[in-house]
Design a protein around this nucleic acid. Structure first.
Lengths: 150, 150
DNA sequence: TCCTTAATTGAGAATGAGTTTCAATTTCAA
DNA sequence: TTGAAATTGAAACTCATTCTCAATTAAGGA
């Protein structure tokens, strides 16, 4: 038997049964202020004496993604899916340096507006977007120029 | 011994030995006008009597990606990495319906301009960008409304 | 052309993230 | 309280990708 609380409403709305495992997974992902993967959830719950099987976690994350609670943001170096909790991580886009890996976060209202316009034009209801600019940062450009004096 | 041709220049530039396998892989990916994965390359070469081992293909694709010949554009339903050959697929962005999977391709000059401005501002040399808008298409919205009359 | 050596290849084994199976457990509506 | 249906977890499984290593090959110098 699980008491009613903030976390149950999502489960109920989605027609999912309220189990301790699901509540614990939900509580856990709300704690991550940054990116996380399935293993992070497993480890966190294990350390905090709320063991949940990996199977349940791997079953839950795609559901949470489908419902927009979390967002898939890529893969890490071990090919694990990286997630972020939407309400914990305010929306932003990324500029990534392909040389040194530096990441700059930014937000541009004009682009967001244009994205909305485009979706209107195609009669799409826009729910989210991902934008990643890839290039070379100031420092790496400097380094490259130096090395060109061969 | 492999004759010099259009495909060898890239390999030479990168300090890679010119092998028939590499030439065949290069020829193959230049033929794909759309997305492809490692298995597509393997199957194509097999059918065309130019068998190359999967190992060689899986070794080659990350090199081609690193050098900007091909681009990683996501994962398919079997979790295979999807690539596209940069010079074969003119630049565009995507609107994806999260309900039915429909993909619309578009290009917006204003957004491209703004992306450039942003990179200038952060002193980044912009090389490429990925933008994906996710939402619900007209048809799926209609279907949803219909089903709401419960 | 012939050698040498270092890179490359391919077959098959290994890896590992994620999925599935199924018996046992739990939820929850009646 | 009860029972159908959903959920769980341990372990087996899947399968894309990577690794291993012996055999082959490219390429530069003699």
């Amino acid at each position: 038997m699980v008491k009613d609380n903030l976390f149950t409403s999502y489960l109920k709305k989605d027609g999912l049964k309220i189990t301790n495992q699901r509540i614990n997974i939900l509580k856990c992902i709300k704690l991550f202020k940054n990116h996380f993967n399935a293993e992070d959830v497993y480890e966190y719950l294990k350390k905090n004496l709320k063991e949940v099987s990996r199977a349940s976690i791997y079953r839950m994350l795609p559901l949470l993604k489908k419902d927009g609670i979390i967002k898939e943001v890529g893969r890490d170096e071990n090919d694990k899916i990286i997630y972020e909790c939407v309400e914990n991580v305010p929306h932003h886009d990324h500029i990534v340096c392909i040389k040194c890996g530096k990441i700059i976060e930014f937000k541009n209202e004009k682009i967001e507006k244009l994205q909305n316009d485009i979706c209107m034009q195609y009669k799409f209801k826009l729910l989210e977007h991902n934008m990643e600019l890839k290039g070379i940062c100031k420092e790496c450009l400097k380094r490259e120029k130096k090395n060109d004096i061969n």
